[in-house]
Amino acid sequence: MADSQEFPCALTLDVPFPTARLASVALKSIQVDKELSPLVRRDFSIASPTSGAEGDNVEDTVLQIHYRATTNRMLRVAVNSFMESLALVIEVMENLDTDVLAAKSADTS
């Protein structure tokens, strides 16, 4: 495993979303920008919740990010940057998704 020797510092984040659509929006919004540092590798995927949800209609609602870096410092920088983008995307979802805007305009009219 050359990879784990070169990139020994790793972190996996599971970010649960209410729907598969929102998990997919978050992934697609953030994944376009390449990781700037060659000292950091990352993988995005979408998974189904591992616990709680049972039955046939388990949607893939969990955004999963796996970070690997050469040092803990690089790992921290990369993960912080990801968290900042994620916070923006979630705020946009909360305030500007079509259903939210429709509800807001129904309130005012």
Partner: peptide, 11 residues
């Protein structure tokens, strides 16, 4: 751009 993409996907 991240915000713009989120809007583009949501809308």
């Amino acid at each position: 751009a991240v915000g713009a993409r989120a809007l583009s996907l949501l809308w």
